[in-house]
Deep mutational scan, measured.
Amino acid sequence: EMEYEEITLERGNSGLGFSIAGGTDNPHIGDDPSIFITKIIPGGAAAQDGRLRVNDSILFVNEVDVREVTHSAAVEALKEAGSIVRLYVMRRKP
Rank of each mutant, 00 (worst) to 15 (best):
N26T: 13
G17P: 04
G50R: 09
G17L: 05
G15R: 15
P42N: 15
E80C: 13
M2I: 04
P33G: 10
H71V: 03
G50Y: 04
G12S: 12
V64H: 09
I37R: 00
K79L: 01
P42Q: 10
V75A: 04
A77Q: 14
A73L: 09
M90H: 15
I41A: 05
N13V: 06
L9D: 00
D32F: 09
A21D: 12
H28P: 14
T24Q: 13
E5V: 15
H71R: 07
R92W: 09
D31W: 04
A81C: 07
G50V: 10
R67V: 09
A46N: 02
E68R: 06
D56C: 02
F36P: 01
I41L: 10
F60Q: 14
V61E: 00
A21V: 11
N13S: 10
Y88P: 01
T38M: 10
M90W: 02
Q48H: 05
D31G: 06
S14V: 15
P27F: 11
R67S: 12
E76K: 08
F60V: 12
N55H: 05
Y88K: 11
I41T: 08
E63L: 06
R92L: 05
P33A: 11
D65H: 14
D65N: 14
T38Y: 07
Y4D: 05
S14I: 13
V54G: 13
T8R: 04
I40Q: 01
M90K: 09
V75G: 07
Y4S: 08
R53A: 06
G12E: 07
S19V: 01
L16F: 05
L59F: 10
V85I: 03
R11D: 10
R67W: 05
D25L: 06
G23D: 08
V66G: 01
H71Y: 06
R11P: 08
H71K: 15
P33I: 10
G50F: 06
E80M: 10
T70A: 09
S34G: 07
E63P: 02
T24M: 09
T24R: 14
R92Q: 04
G12I: 10
V85P: 09
M90P: 14
K93M: 11
I40Y: 01
G23H: 04
D31Y: 07
D25Y: 04
K93R: 02
I84F: 15
R51G: 12
